[in-house]
Amino acid sequence: MLLLPDNRLIVGASGNIFVTKDPITNNTGTVKWQQVYTSTVASSILDLPEYQHRGYVNTANKTIYPATDNEIWIGQADRLVFKSDDGVNGFYDIENPATPYTITYTGTNSNIPKTDCWFITNNKVDAADQNVYIGIGEGFATNVGNGHVMQVNKNQTNIFQLGDQILGGDPVKIMFTKNGLSSQKYLLSNDLITLNHRKESGVYKAVYGRPIH
């Protein structure tokens, strides 16, 4: 963290840099923060707020999943889930394959939340299951902060959310069983355990929550 001469505070957290808009000594309980981004489109500064510029600074990788020697998936804090098919370059947003992964990414809007990726894994039990499972810590819009698990096929042609988004939950682990998706389970949250499973109807529901401390 860094205190500026005018008592505004800069901190690094959640994979990003934030600065207060006012001196910290004016604290009234409602501090205005601004995330710091890199500006990528010079002209956009004329008609867009700065936070619409993509290409965040201080972004951190949270997980890497090497599906094969050449197929590498990465999940990042406050960014998207990216994939490379050559194992070296060409990382792209899994929903926008034409968009290469660079810090100047300006991908299109998406309603599928996939930021703050905690894990990417495959089905540990059923080798025939070619899907990739992604634990997401941040939901979208009104679901900010809500954890959930996504299922993605390797060609990214079929992406959907498994079960409910859980308030304040961070995905911890997905457990695979031999009985297929009907009994697959995953854990959400570091502080509260919420065990989810899929009902026969195909709808995931939280079945119980139990604080562990």
């Binding site: 957290a13 990003n16 995330q35 930021t115 703050d116 941040e138 939901g139 979208f140 819009a141 902060g145």
Partner: peptide, 8 residues
């Protein structure tokens, strides 16, 4: 906020 990820 400084510890809340901005949504897409």
């Amino acid at each position: 906020g400084w510890n809340t990820t901005r949504p897409l």
